[in-house]
């Protein structure tokens, strides 16, 4: 099996056209890879570009230069250059993403928000909802909330919905953007053990964890993002 994720010489900057086209460099020469069953954690201070790297891997941010190689349908695909349709397929089948904030959809219940990625992959609706229920139960989300849209939930409740949604599928690659930020100690431990389970099944994970305890509990390796930083204003 090929390495699930290879990031090679990636650079990212923002061009602010509304501010006379100034370029804000974010990262350059980003190179690392993650093996199956490994959890790599991006390290570095705020603003170093950790989130940008996650978003580039997920296809959510454009990539200036370099390659992000993911195996997809018996071939290797460069996410940095993939067309939208391929990228949608990769998201459905290869890369899962737990974002920091939940983007809620009006009127869709928490249970259906969690079940949706499974249904999108063709799993029977009832089975998907059963699995969603057991994940939410494991994360201690009160059952009376399951049928409600998460828009009005507290930050911690929304985060748990988000985690369940990200963990429900068996994507070989999982991106975790501060999944435990708003959780209490008990639920942090639940997430840590969920990450451990994913590792055991061979999922390659790339995460951002500000919480040092969690980081130490899950990280096999720290990828230091400061090594990829660009001196201000001279991005190549």
């Amino acid at each position: 099996m090929p390495t699930p994720l290879v990031v090679s010489d990636v650079a990212k900057s923002f061009t602010m056209h509304l501010r006379d086209g100034i370029r804000l460099p974010v990262v350059a020469n980003v190179s690392f890879s993650i093996k199956a069953g490994e959890c790599a954690v991006l390290g570095g201070p705020s603003g170093a570009g950790k989130s940008s790297i996650l978003k580039m891997v997920y296809g959510n941010y454009a990539v200036d230069r370099g390659q992000i190689i993911v195996p997809y349908r018996d071939r290797l695909v460069d996410v940095a250059a993939a067309d939208p349709r391929t990228m949608l397929g990769i998201r459905r089948d290869m890369i899962g993403y737990v974002s920091q904030f939940l983007r809620t959809v009006p009127r869709v219940s928490a249970l259906d928000v969690v079940a949706e990625p499974l249904i999108a992959r063709g799993v029977d609706r009832k089975d998907a909802r059963d699995k969603a229920g057991s994940l939410l139960a494991g994360l201690n989300l009160p059952e009376r909330l399951w049928s409600l849209p998460p828009a009005t939930f507290s930050g911690g409740e929304q985060q748990r919905v988000n985690i369940a949604r990200g963990f429900i599928t068996d994507h070989p690659i999982l991106l975790l953007d501060e999944p435990t930020a708003s959780l209490d100690a008990k639920n942090r431990d639940v997430v840590v053990s969920m990450i451990q389970q994913k590792k055991d099944t061979g999922v390659a994970m790339l995460g951002i964890f500000h919480d040092q305890d969690v980081r130490e509990a899950v990280a096999d390796r720290i990828v230091d993002v400061t090594a990829f930083s660009v001196p201000n204003g001279v991005a190549a």
Binding site: H17, L18, K55, G59, N60, Y61, A62
Partner: peptide
């Protein structure tokens, strides 16, 4: 492009 890419990282002025 992908909807979330265009909205989160718009390229064109």
């Amino acid at each position: 492009g992908l909807t979330d890419r265009v909205l989160d990282d718009p390229q064109a002025p």
